[in-house]
Design a protein around this nucleic acid. Structure first.
Length: 122
RNA sequence: GGAGUUGGCCAGACAAUCGCCGUUUGAAUUGCACUUGUGUAAUUCAAAGGGAGGAAAGUCCGGGCUCCAUAGGGCAGGGUGCCAGAUAACGUCUGGGCGGCGUAAGCCGACGACAAGUGCAGCAGAGAGUAGACCGCCUAAGCGCUGAUGUUUCGACAUUAACGCCGGUAAGGCUGAAAGGGUGCGGUAAGAGCGCACCGCGUUGCUGGUAACAGUAUACGGCGAGGUAAACUCCACCCGGAGCAAGACCAAAUAGGGUUCCUGACGGCGCGGCCCGCGUUGGAACCGGGUAGGUUGCUUGAGCCAGUGAGCGAUUGCUGGCCUAGAGGAAUGAUUGUCCACGACAGAACCCGGCUUAUCGGCCAACUCCAAUA
């Protein structure tokens, strides 16, 4: 397996996983996206994405956003903590261009990993 | 060449790097089966090849498929609505008819019946549905009154003119979206299908057409029957319900059901130092249901392409070739570079046939109108 792959093991697969994260999460917030993270027992981070129909109307746009988020996660997964991460899309997300989204996400990954380290040590 | 109509097609291209999901082939590991070196399943690696649309959308119709219900028929309810055909079927398509628009190619049309019944219609207007007298027109008949003339038995009577009453009248005006066929002549007091001619309408017959419908008449009807059925209704035809979260299979942990067997209440566990006592109830095998989860349904199909036969056409017969996404918190992508016409609307979720809506631009064919040239 390559270093930047993105297999099913790196995703959150069931509603139970999502519920687990929502319960006691470490947040990282921006106007368009909220990241929620929780330590897991795996040796790698796991990703889940939720973008509701209410926030982004067109299925075509939702697909695009998910792909971008996944791609950013895939390229940055080595710096991320071993946690389950849920990306929650908010309204206004659909207006971002792809480069804008990439820079926004890389900022948020850094923020999140810093906070996770703090919570672990403190 | 310009303007336009109809039908069909395409949906940025190429390269590099990094990813995702099926398929095929090869290899390795593990499990299972036995016919002991093969088969099969899972995982990993490598290679090859494939990976959204014309609307994938809205979910507005129709069908397949699945489960449930169902003898047959009727009622209710819903749908469709010129005719014929195509089709698995349709509210779709094709051809035709009728009406409307356009110089034309063409386009548009819920287009059965109000002459079965019931209902509805603001304002204006005299009158709005077995019509109506406001203005206007008329005063022939009937009545009243006045004048004139004539006759006279001086009571009146007759004629005539004006006026009034009782009326007549649907030609004209006014109102309105709409005023109960039109034009002309006759007719009349004035008028009126009151009569006639022609036109229109309807009925009937005949002719052509499968039919819708069209044409026609030494025929019949003076016209009675205005509009509205996306008003009830009538007529003809069609329709069982729910949907892939359908349905089928496997089935953990935990809880729990049934049967049989074992143990046997003198047993085990808890209270207890022990007894009595009190409370509580075991093990195994098999069977059936079934949650989480998994597998399947899941892509070979009313399929696509080419040729050819039938048909005006929708469509269809035959022959040959092709396999062209199959995910599942949901793949089909990202970044960079180059080029150009600078890229719209937009993402499959069981599958098809349509309709509707969104949409940057480009290409092809046929046809129409205008202009010019030879």
């Amino acid at each position: 397996m390559g270093e930047n792959s993105f297999s099913r093991e790196l995703r959150l697969l069931t509603p139970a996983h999502f519920e687990n994260v929502f319960n006691k999460a470490i947040p990282a917030v921006s106007p368009q996206i909220t990241l929620l993270a929780k330590q897991n027992n795996c040796s790698h981070p796991r990703l889940g994405i939720t973008i509701s129909k209410k926030r982004v109307k067109k299925a075509h746009d939702r697909n695009r956003l998910k792909r971008i988020i996944r791609e950013s996660y895939r390229l940055n997964q080595n710096m991320l903590p071993k946690a389950d991460i849920v990306v929650v899309g908010k309204s206004g997300l659909g207006d971002l261009t792809n480069p804008e989204l990439f820079t926004l996400l890389s900022k948020l990954w850094k923020k999140l990993s810093r906070r996770c380290e703090q919570s672990q040590s403190g």
